[in-house]
């Protein structure tokens, strides 16, 4: 049995876990826009404090968030350094060929760094405390207005939930196929780029066939259980707003107000 957790959901029961996934998803998306409201040291300090408070409210280990930031650390430094060396204006401290370090550059590099890190942190808070299934439900809820434009939201939701349900199953199957090929002498970790790409064929082809067969079986099973398209279906899983959602809403409104007040100081 596999122990993989889809996405990177880590079970827990702190305050952040009790917030409705729809609220979390909305706030996370809005946060990315709100962060651009910050334009001076005070607003950046405010938004950093608010974000760190959210991180600590999850009561998870710092390591979890470090793991979230780590894969993007190269990009963060690259962008910050670009700002640092190519931004001119204000006092110039150091200059060589096309590189300059100026006061504007320093400040902007720091802002970019903070902005990036905060966006990653807040999205990590979201993915780590929300089950993929809940995220899918939240996405379905957000997509609902698209029904006006005849977007088949119910079908998309079913597709997402089936896709999520099959992630661990297909992962298990992939491991099984890899082990079976290994026992016949396949080598997946050696050789150059071309050789490794070729070694993937004996995994991909059976996996592809397996997925198609599973899809046929599953559709037969669904049909024989009375599935005939999304119309007229009721929903078993529902999301409920709670008082915790009010807390998160006020928290977010407070953040936006503070940012607006201190913006032009």
């Amino acid at each position: 049995m596999s122990k993989i957790i889809v996405g990177r959901y880590i079970p827990g029961n702190s305050l952040v876990y009790k917030i409705d996934p729809r609220g979390k998803l909305l706030i996370t998306i809005l946060f990315i826009f709100v962060i651009f409201l910050a334009n001076n040291p005070i607003t950046y300090a405010i938004i950093t404090v608010f974000c760190l408070a959210a991180v600590f409210a999850t009561r998870l280990k710092v390591r979890v968030f470090w793991d979230g930031v780590k894969p993007l650390i190269g990009l963060i430094f690259f962008t910050s350094l670009l700002q640092l060396f190519f931004m001119t204006g204000g006092k110039t401290y150091w200059q060589w060929w096309i590189f300059t370090i100026s006061s504007y550059g320093l400040v902007n590099a720091a802002y970019t760094f903070i902005r990036f890190t905060l966006i990653i942190l807040i999205s990590t808070v979201m993915t780590v405390t929300t089950m993929p299934l809940e995220i899918a439900d939240a996405m379905e809820w957000l997509l609902k207005p698209l029904k006006i434009f005849k977007v088949p939201v119910d079908k998309i939701a079913l597709v997402i939930s089936i896709a999520l349900r099959f992630v661990p199953t297909l992962f298990d199957e992939t491991l099984k196929i890899m082990n079976a090929q290994r026992s016949r002498g396949a080598d997946f970790n050696d050789g150059g780029l071309v050789k490794r790409a070729k070694a993937i064929t004996p995994i991909l082809v059976p996996l592809f066939i397996h997925s198609l067969e599973t899809a046929i079986d599953l559709s037969t099973a669904m049909e024989s259980r009375g599935y005939r398209g999304s119309s007229g279906r009721t929903k078993y899983r529902v999301l409920n707003w709670s008082k915790y959602d009010l807390i998160s809403l006020f928290y977010f409104i407070a953040l936006v107000l503070l940012l607006l007040i201190f913006r032009n100081h």
Partner: peptide
């Protein structure tokens, strides 16, 4: 096949 008829998550 018990795996291929499980629709729900």
């Amino acid at each position: 096949n018990p795996d291929n008829q499980f629709v729900g998550a």
